Simulated assay, not measured.
Amino acid sequence: MRIMTYNVHVWYDNDGQFKLQEMIDLIKLLKPDLLCLQEITKHGLTEFVKQTGFTKVFKYHSVAILTNIENVEELSPPSNTRNYYPRFATVKVPLGDGKEFFLTCVHLDYKVETNRMKEIKQIKKHLSCLNADAAQVWAGDFNALTLEDYSDVVLNEITSVRRKNNWEMPKNDVSTTMKADGFECSWALVDRPPPVSTCRFDTHIDYIYINQDFRKIFEVTKVEHHGSTASDHSPVIADFKLIQTDDTEEESGDQ
């Protein structure tokens, strides 16, 4: 199972060049089973889907989940309010033998951690309908740092750059909350292979988080922060292997 997240920056690269075709070619090469996109536009998505061949598209505002897996279902989308414009979508992915997991495509606020924490709270509230032992994946642009991803020297450099540009100082609240809720960064689980960065500011802000119940079903085998420069974000690709149980082994033997 290959899950991928990609902030496509409305199909433009960091230099303002339209890169839709390059992104399409990249997806055709990488062949994700489930693709989470952020910062999409309708006109680009239509051509993207046409050329990549995805048969199921679950779009909500500027985020989308694309797949060819049969019987994937969308959870009821979140509601807009005057002060809340949600940027997430969730689908249920059946695996057979009564197993399933839930994939949430996430795009959090880029400005301040307090806003991101409010959005995390809203997502959790929306997903409170799920069973306590539901296997979950949250993938997307979290716009949040994990401080342990960096050495003291690098973190000091990040802090200095942010101070000079009057940006928010490095925060760890989102990643701490995700961990407290039983989620782990899949990239960290495979010992953080380089490069660290997933965006033009040389920081890691795009994640594929998996919870403990998902890890009972799948083993993470590889995670890559891809080097493509078609967007101002790097694609994050995670490969997972279904854990064989006695039931699945017997089922495989019967086929």
Rank of each mutant, 00 (worst) to 15 (best):
W167Q: 07
E74L: 09
I217V: 13
V220I: 14
V154D: 09
I27F: 00
G253T: 07
D181P: 02
Q38T: 01
F240M: 13
G16A: 00
N71R: 10
D15W: 15
S197W: 05
V49C: 06
S62R: 15
I243L: 09
I120K: 08
S62P: 00
T90L: 10
S175K: 01
L242H: 14
F218E: 04
L127E: 03
S234A: 12
E100V: 12
E157Q: 13
L103D: 02
D97E: 15
K56R: 10
H225I: 02
S234I: 00
I65D: 00
Q122W: 07
E250Q: 13
R163S: 07
I123G: 12
F240W: 05
P77Q: 06
Y60M: 04
L155C: 11
Q51D: 07
I208A: 06
G96W: 11
K222S: 00
D254T: 15
R82F: 12
E157R: 10
D97L: 14
N131D: 12
K164A: 14
T177G: 01
P78R: 02
I65Q: 01
S76T: 14
S228T: 01
N166E: 06
T229L: 05
L95E: 12
K216C: 04
S197D: 13
T229F: 00
R215A: 10
I210H: 10
A135M: 10
K28L: 09
N71L: 11
E100D: 07
L75W: 05
E70I: 09
R200N: 14
Q255M: 12
N68L: 04
S175C: 15
Q244T: 12
Y110T: 13
M169E: 10
S76W: 06
P32H: 00
F102L: 02
M1W: 00
I158Q: 08
K59M: 04
R87H: 11
D246M: 14
Y85E: 14
E47T: 15
E47L: 13
K56G: 03
N80R: 14
P195V: 03
K56V: 01
M178Q: 02
K179P: 03
I243R: 13
N172D: 15
V10C: 03
T221P: 03
Y84T: 08
F183V: 03
N211S: 07
S76F: 12
E100L: 06
T104L: 01
E157V: 02
G53L: 06
T52F: 05
R200A: 09
A230C: 13
D173M: 10
S62M: 08
H126Q: 13
N71Q: 14
E113C: 07
C199N: 12
P170K: 03
Q122V: 05
Y60K: 11
I210S: 15
A134H: 04
P86A: 09
G98I: 14
K92I: 14
T203D: 14
L127F: 06
P86C: 06
K28N: 12
K59I: 14
E249Q: 09
L95A: 07
E74F: 03
M4I: 08
F18Q: 06
K124H: 10
T90R: 11
T52W: 05
L130Q: 09
T67Q: 04
I27S: 00
V137M: 01
N143S: 04
Y85M: 02
T52A: 03
S252F: 15
N7S: 07
N68Q: 08
W167P: 00
P32K: 01
F214W: 10
E73K: 10
F201W: 15
T114D: 11
V93K: 06
I205R: 02
V153I: 15
A134M: 01
L45I: 08
L242T: 09
L66S: 01
